[in-house]
């Protein structure tokens, strides 16, 4: 695996050494490392000649740029009103019980992080969840568990 420093350098090389590249660089790091470590943010500040606070400001603004360690797979369950009315709580409870974590937590084996999210734009097919970049609509607790089971099988830590 690349060290954080080399990764950031490569990303900056690719995207350009200007402030405009801050977002793609941060996204690139999250793609590789699942979150933005303190070290990664400092590396970015150094490479783009920004203050570390500035980088942290941008990183903390976006929901899909995490600044705390996350599992290999990130489950985001839609918490907005339509999904809520269509039984989002049952999905949360089912996954929470199965993974033995609460919202915002990561499993011991670092395979899953369980989060909620604002509207994913699938209100007509709620409740819905996002696992990494994949959308899963019309969930039932059973269906949600099966999906997670699949991810668990194919994830190697």
């Amino acid at each position: 695996m690349l060290t954080t420093e080399t990764l950031v350098k490569e990303l900056v090389e690719k995207n350009g050494r200007t402030r405009n590249s801050l977002m793609p660089v941060l996204q690139g790091i999250v793609r590789e490392q699942n979150y933005l470590s303190d070290e990664a943010m400092i590396c970015v500040a150094k490479e783009l000649d920004l203050s570390a606070a500035d980088v942290y400001g941008t990183a903390s603004f976006y929901s899909f740029l995490d600044t705390i360690p996350r599992g290999k797979n990130i489950i985001r369950i839609c918490k907005t009103i339509t999904c809520h009315m269509q039984g989002k709580d049952d999905i949360v409870n089912a996954l929470s019980n199965a993974l033995k974590i609460k919202i915002g937590e990561t499993t011991h084996d670092k395979k899953f992080t369980l989060l909620t999210t604002n509207c994913l734009g699938w209100c007509h097919k709620g409740p819905v969840m996002l696992v990494n970049d994949e959308v899963y609509p019309e969930l039932t607790p059973q269906k949600a568990l099966e999906i997670i089971e699949e991810y668990a099988k194919k994830t190697v830590i």
């Binding site: 303190d38 943010m41 920004l50 203050s51 570390a52 606070a53 500035d54 980088v55 942290y56 400001g57 903390s60 603004f61 600044t67």
Partner: peptide, 26 residues
């Protein structure tokens, strides 16, 4: 730029890098 706007919405605040104490940041 010792201070930046961090987080958003009702969580938004003015913060140093990682909300560190002022004597530890630039």
């Amino acid at each position: 730029s010792a201070l930046a706007v961090v987080h958003k919405g009702d969580q938004q605040k003015i913060s140093t890098f990682l909300n560190k104490p002022l004597n530890e940041v630039v």
